[in-house]
Amino acid sequence: MKIGIVLETKEHEKAWNALRFAITSLGKGHEVRIFLMGEGVEIEDIKDDKFDVTNKMHDFTENGGKLLACGTCIMSRHREDTTTCPISTMVDCVEMVEWADKTVTF
């Protein structure tokens, strides 16, 4: 199955759970893409001892997950493109939803 995830928050536990869901889905043989939107583009800045989002994000990408980030949301926060979260467009988001058999939001 192809699973698309839209993550719109930088809230520690929700971002952590989205990544846990994504990693578990990859482990079950599914293809997974995450599109970061709104404050979700700030996911790399989450620092929390209880909810280790940074390591989960690395686990996701190292296991074949694809991570995209809304360019407009990145630019509105005066952030730059990174190798972990390449700048993407709404067209990319629409294409992810079209590609996915199921789409989940967090």
Rank of each mutant, 00 (worst) to 15 (best):
M1D: 08
I3F: 03
G4F: 11
I5M: 07
I5P: 00
L7Y: 02
L7I: 05
L7N: 06
L7C: 08
E8Q: 10
T9Q: 01
E13I: 15
E13T: 12
E13D: 14
E13F: 15
K14P: 00
A15I: 05
W16R: 09
N17G: 00
N17C: 00
A18L: 02
L19E: 05
R20I: 05
F21T: 06
I23M: 08
I23C: 08
L26A: 01
L26R: 01
G27F: 03
G27V: 00
E31F: 09
E31H: 07
V32M: 01
R33F: 01
R33Q: 11
I34H: 03
L36T: 09
M37L: 10
G38L: 00
G38H: 01
E39G: 01
G40P: 01
G40M: 02
V41K: 08
E44W: 05
E44P: 03
E44Q: 10
D45T: 12
D45K: 12
D45M: 08
D45N: 09
K47C: 13
D48K: 05
D48Q: 10
D48M: 07
D49M: 07
K50M: 08
F51G: 04
D52V: 14
D52Q: 09
T54F: 15
T54N: 14
N55T: 13
M57R: 12
H58T: 15
H58S: 11
D59G: 09
F60H: 02
T61A: 10
T61P: 05
N63M: 09
G64L: 12
G65D: 11
K66G: 08
K66W: 13
L68I: 14
L68V: 11
A69W: 06
A69T: 09
A69S: 10
C70H: 09
C70A: 09
T72I: 08
C73L: 02
C73R: 04
C73T: 05
I74N: 04
M75R: 15
M75C: 05
S76D: 13
S76L: 10
R77T: 11
R79K: 15
D81Q: 15
T82Q: 10
T82F: 12
T83N: 10
T83V: 13
T84I: 15
C85Q: 09
C85V: 04
P86N: 10
I87Y: 08
I87E: 07
T89A: 06
T89Y: 06
V91S: 13
D92S: 14
D92H: 14
V94P: 04
M96Y: 04
V97M: 08
V97L: 04
E98T: 03
E98N: 15
W99Q: 11
A100W: 07
D101G: 12
K102E: 11
V104D: 01
F106W: 07
